[in-house]
C-alpha cells in the first residue's frame, strides 16, 4: 500500500488543502492544513519550496546541490524529506 519509493523522474506537489508559507515570526517555513501545522527546518523548507508540480525529484536534487554546493550527503536528506512528507500526506505524486 505504501508507495514510498521516491524515483528520480517522479513529480510531487503539495497535497490539496495544504498551504506552504514563510512565517516571519518563526523565521521558518510552515505547512498548514486542517487542524494542524508543521514547522520546517531550513533544509526541509527548501525542498518543499521547489515542489511546483513540474520539477522532478531529480531536478530538485540538482537544484539544491547547485544552491548548496558545500552541503554533504544532501541527496539522502532530500529523498528522506520526500519520504517523510509523503508518509505524512503533506505532498502527493502528480
Amino acid at each position: 500500500m505504501m508507495d514510498n519509493q521516491i524515483q528520480n523522474a517522479d513529480i510531487y506537489t503539495l497535497s490539496p488543502h495544504h498551504r506552504f508559507q514563510w512565517e516571519e515570526a518563526q523565521s521558518s517555513y510552515v505547512i498548514l492544513f486542517p487542524e494542524g501545522m508543521v514547522k520546517l527546518h531550513g533544509g526541509a523548507g527548501e525542498v518543499i519550496k521547489r515542489l511546483d508540480g513540474k520539477a522532478t525529484v531529480g531536478d530538485v536534487v540538482a537544484d539544491l546541490k547547485a544552491t548548496f554546493p558545500d552541503a554533504e550527503n544532501i541527496e539522502k536528506d532530500i529523498i528522506g524529506m520526500y519520504e517523510l512528507a509523503l508518509s505524512k500526506t503533506w505532498i502527493r505524486k502528480v
Binding site: 487542524e35 508543521v38 527546518h41 524529506m81 517523510l84 505524512k88
Partner: peptide
C-alpha cells in the same frame, strides 16, 4: 485533540523537520 495534533506535527524529528522548542508564540 488539536493540541495533540500540534505536538505531533511539530515534534516530528526526522530529516530536518524541526523538533519543537517551547513555543512562546500563540500559534
Amino acid at each position: 485533540s488539536v493540541v495533540q495534533k500540534t505536538i505531533h506535527a511539530t515534534q516530528t524529528q526526522n530529516n530536518g523537520v524541526a523538533a519543537s522548542v517551547t513555543q512562546t508564540q500563540p500559534l
